[in-house]
Computed example of a mutant assay.
Amino acid sequence: MPTIRIYEAALCCDTGVCGADVDKSLVEVTANVRNLQGLGADIARHNLAGDPTAFTSDETVRGFMHTVGSKGLPLTVVDGVTVATGAYPSLEQLRELAGLGGAANSTGAASSTGAMPRTELGLTESSGGCCGGATGCC
């Protein structure tokens, strides 16, 4: 089974349910990762604030951070290959990457999303996670 790792910018929490502004992408990726872990997928998230060693110990991630920096996060890597930058993959995309193809959509039909699109760097707005502003952290 493929190894999926998602590397994220520095956040005080991974759920997105803290502070005044809820980050829907964090809520979704948290649920998606837990869903796939429950199905036996080898998937994990690494937060720059909580797990900086993960960013320096992986050659692909280290090179990405040296070249692009944290502005390009999140970064999704499957078996050492970068598959997405700047945004989180959808549940269907993660299922395909995990080798759990034939993902059912909300109607129960099989997904046919094909190859995963790559998000261009710098085109997504950074939410800053749940930290910052006048609200502080969780």
Rank of each mutant, 00 (worst) to 15 (best):
L26M: 10
V33G: 00
I6M: 04
V68T: 12
K24D: 06
L97Y: 15
C18I: 12
T85V: 13
D21A: 08
C131T: 07
G99C: 11
G128P: 04
A115T: 14
C137H: 10
G101M: 05
D23A: 04
T53Y: 02
V22H: 12
T85E: 13
G122N: 09
R95F: 03
S106W: 07
T30M: 03
C18F: 08
T124C: 13
L11P: 00
R95Q: 15
P74G: 06
M1N: 14
F55E: 02
P117G: 04
I6P: 03
L73P: 03
G133N: 09
G129N: 10
A31F: 06
H66M: 10
G108E: 06
A20T: 15
N32M: 05
S106P: 03
A110S: 11
N35G: 07
V78P: 09
T53W: 01
G128W: 04
V78H: 06
Q93D: 08
S90G: 08
S25K: 10
G114Q: 08
A87Q: 07
A103T: 08
N35D: 13
T107P: 01
T113D: 11
Y7A: 00
V17G: 04
S57K: 12
T124A: 15
D51L: 01
T85K: 09
F64D: 01
T30E: 08
A115N: 10
M116Y: 05
A54M: 06
G40W: 08
L94M: 12
C12R: 00
V68P: 01
M65W: 03
G114D: 13
D58I: 14
R62G: 03
A98D: 11
D51G: 01
T53E: 04
G122F: 06
N47C: 11
G69P: 08
L48D: 02
C130S: 10
Y7N: 01
G86P: 10
M1C: 06
A49W: 03
D51V: 01
A31V: 14
T60P: 05
N35A: 12
G102L: 09
L123E: 13
T113P: 03
G19N: 10
P52C: 03
V77L: 03
L75T: 00
L48Y: 01
I4G: 05
A98V: 11
G129Y: 05
I6D: 00
E59C: 05
C138G: 09
S90A: 10
K24I: 11
T3I: 08
G136C: 11
T56V: 11
G129F: 02
S57M: 12
A110L: 13
N32S: 14
E59D: 15
A109C: 04
Y7L: 02
G19E: 08
E59M: 09
T113G: 09
V22R: 13
R118S: 12
